[in-house]
Computed example of a mutant assay.
Amino acid sequence: MERSLWSALCCASLLLAGVRATYHLGTGDPQLIAAQSYAQTRNNGSQCMSRPLDLVFIIDSSRSVRPAEFEKVKIFLADMVDTLDVGTDATRVAVVNYASTVKIEFLLKDHFNKPDMKKAISRIAPLAAGTMTGLAIKTSVNEAFTEQSGARPRSRKISKVAIIVTDGRPQDQVEEVSAAARASGIEIYAVGVDRADMRSLQLMASVPLEEHVFYVETYGVIKKLTSKFRETLCGVDPCAMGHDCEHLCVNSNASYYCKCRNGYILNADKKTCSLKQVKVVEDPCKCEARLAFQKQSQAAIQQLTAKNILPVDSERLEHMVGRA
C-alpha cells in the first residue's frame, strides 16, 4: 500500500514539474507583459510616447495679442504638455515669454511632472509692447538650452526643439540668430497666427519648411495644432500602424518583432506561432500507465491554452498532492 502511494506521489510530482517547465504556470514572460502594457497605454490614452526632447516654447505676448487670445495660447501649451511624455528622463519643457523684453517663465530643470508644469503655465502673464522675436530666440539659445538650465549633454543625443508662436512681424532681425540656433542643433518650428509674417516664419524655421511652418487664422483655432504636433513629435508606433504578427507585436524603436503567447513557439517565418511540442521524459518511477496519463493531461492543457483558458493553479495542485 505504501509503495503504491509513493509511486503515485512520485508520478504526480514529476508530471507537475514537466507541466510547469513547459507552460510556466503561475509566471509570466516579462517582455510580453511589458509589450501588452505598452499596447494598452497606446490604445487607452492620448499620451504620446515621444522620443525624449529638450523642448522650449517661445511665445509672443506683445501688444497685438489680446488678453483673451493669450489665454488661448496658454491652453494650447497645457494641451501640448498633456500629450507629451514628460519626465526627468523623458521630455523636459521650458517656456520663454517675449515682447519688447524676454522673460524665461520656467526652465527645463524646473518641472518634471505635468500638474506643476501646467500650474506654472497658468500663471504666465503677457508682457505687452513690441515684438523682439530675434532677441527671444537668442535668449533661448544662450539661457534656456544650456546644461545649467536643464538641457541634456550633447553626448546623450537628446533632440532639442523650439516652438515659436507669434502673430506679428518681428521688430528685430531673426535670420542670423535662427540660423545660429539651427546650427547649434536646435530644431525650430514656427507657428504664425492671424497677422504673422510668413516670410519671417520661413526664415526662423528648420527645413523642410512644409513640416516646420504652421499658420492658423485666429488664436481660437490654435488648439487644432495640438494633434499636428503630437504626430510630429511623437515616435511612430509600428505595431499601431499595422503588423502581421499572429499573436503579439513588440515595438522596437522604429521597427517591431513578433512574439508568441506562453505555450507557443515562433515559427521560421518569425510571424506565426505553433503549439510547443511536449517532450515526454522517461518514467523513473516505473508507474504503470503514467505515460498515457501524461500525454492525455498535457494534450488537454494545450487545448485549454489554445482557447486562452487559464490552466489549473499548480501551487494549489502541488499542495493537494502533498496532503495526499
Rank of each mutant, 00 (worst) to 15 (best):
F106G: 09
R290P: 02
A196F: 00
A196I: 02
S122V: 07
A94W: 05
C287K: 02
G45V: 11
H212S: 08
L127A: 01
F57M: 06
A289L: 11
V312T: 12
A205L: 00
I163L: 03
Q302R: 09
F145A: 07
N267S: 00
S314V: 09
E318I: 14
V207Q: 13
F229W: 07
K286R: 14
K224E: 10
T22P: 06
E69H: 12
S140R: 02
L84A: 08
D79F: 07
G185Y: 00
R152I: 03
S61I: 10
E210R: 15
A300G: 10
V96I: 11
C260K: 01
V312G: 04
H111A: 07
V207W: 05
S100T: 13
L201K: 05
L275Q: 08
A300N: 09
L203T: 07
Y256M: 04
L84M: 13
C10Y: 06
V236A: 07
R323P: 00
G322E: 14
T218G: 03
I137F: 12
I164S: 03
E147L: 11
S46R: 11
A120D: 13
A128Y: 11
L266D: 03
L53G: 04
V191D: 01
L107S: 14
L248F: 13
M80S: 05
L53S: 05
S100A: 14
E211M: 11
M204C: 01
I58Y: 01
G26E: 05
R156E: 14
L16N: 09
M49S: 15
V141Q: 01
Q173A: 14
L84F: 06
V207C: 06
E246K: 03
C245Q: 03
S37R: 15
L317Y: 04
I188K: 02
L127P: 02
R42M: 08
V95F: 00
R20N: 13
I33N: 09
A183P: 01
R230I: 08
V174F: 03
V65I: 14
D313A: 05
V250A: 06
Q296Y: 06
M241E: 14
N267C: 00
G45Y: 12
S155H: 04
A21K: 10
D197N: 06
R169A: 11
I186G: 00
S62P: 03
G322T: 10
L5M: 11
S61K: 06
L291I: 12
A324N: 05
V312N: 13
I265F: 12
V73P: 03
G185E: 00
A190I: 01
L310A: 15
R323I: 11
L9S: 15
A78T: 13
V81G: 00
A306W: 08
V177G: 04
V161I: 06
K74S: 03
I309K: 01
T88S: 14
N44S: 15
R261D: 05
T131M: 07
N251Y: 08
Q303Y: 01
M80D: 06
D237P: 05
K271C: 00
S13D: 15
L16G: 13
D79A: 10
T22H: 07
C260I: 03
K103C: 05
E231V: 07
D269F: 04
K286I: 04
C249Y: 02
F76I: 08
S178D: 02
A144H: 01
Q171K: 12
I75A: 12
E2F: 14
L291G: 11
V278T: 04
E187I: 14
K119I: 10
A21Y: 12
M198A: 06
Q36P: 07
V321P: 07
Q31S: 13
V191P: 00
L15G: 15
